[in-house]
Simulated assay, not measured.
Amino acid sequence: MKLIYAIIHEKDAGLVIETLFEHGYTVTRMASTGGFLRLGNVTLLIGVEPDKVPAVIALLKECCTPTHPNQYAATIFVVDMPVYRKQ
């Protein structure tokens, strides 16, 4: 399993989460603050099989928009998740 941390603009969160749900992905939303995007942002945690990572990144790219010309629409980290349990 892979864990995707996606830091996105707060204004994009609703559309991103809805789109991910429509494609069968589960998402955990965490309110966050920080210097990455310098505006209100949300951190999404998305657990997926390794072969699904490109599809999730494509959905994020489709749904996220930068608020300023020199700013990123999302910051994405993909890490290994050696243990995954549903309880």
Rank of each mutant, 00 (worst) to 15 (best):
V48N: 12
I7C: 03
T65Q: 03
V48A: 00
L37T: 00
V48C: 00
V42Q: 02
Q87E: 15
Q71C: 04
M81I: 00
T33E: 15
G14R: 09
K86S: 08
E62C: 06
F77I: 05
K2H: 11
K2M: 06
R85G: 13
P69L: 08
F77Y: 04
K52D: 13
R38V: 07
P50M: 06
G40P: 14
Y5N: 11
S32Q: 06
P54H: 10
L37S: 00
R85T: 11
V48F: 00
I76F: 02
L60W: 03
M81F: 08
G40S: 12
L37H: 00
S32G: 04
V48G: 04
H23W: 15
E49C: 05
V42S: 11
Y84R: 08
T67I: 13
G35E: 02
L15N: 15
K2A: 12
L15I: 07
V78Y: 08
M1L: 00
H68V: 09
L15D: 09
L39Y: 01
I76E: 03
V27L: 03
L3Q: 11
Y25Q: 05
G34K: 02
L3S: 05
A31P: 12
K11I: 07
T75E: 12
K11P: 10
V16F: 07
P54G: 15
H23N: 15
A13W: 03
T33G: 03
N70G: 10
E49D: 14
K11M: 02
H68R: 10
T26Q: 14
N70A: 08
P69V: 01
S32M: 01
V53S: 09
R85D: 15
D51F: 11
V78R: 03
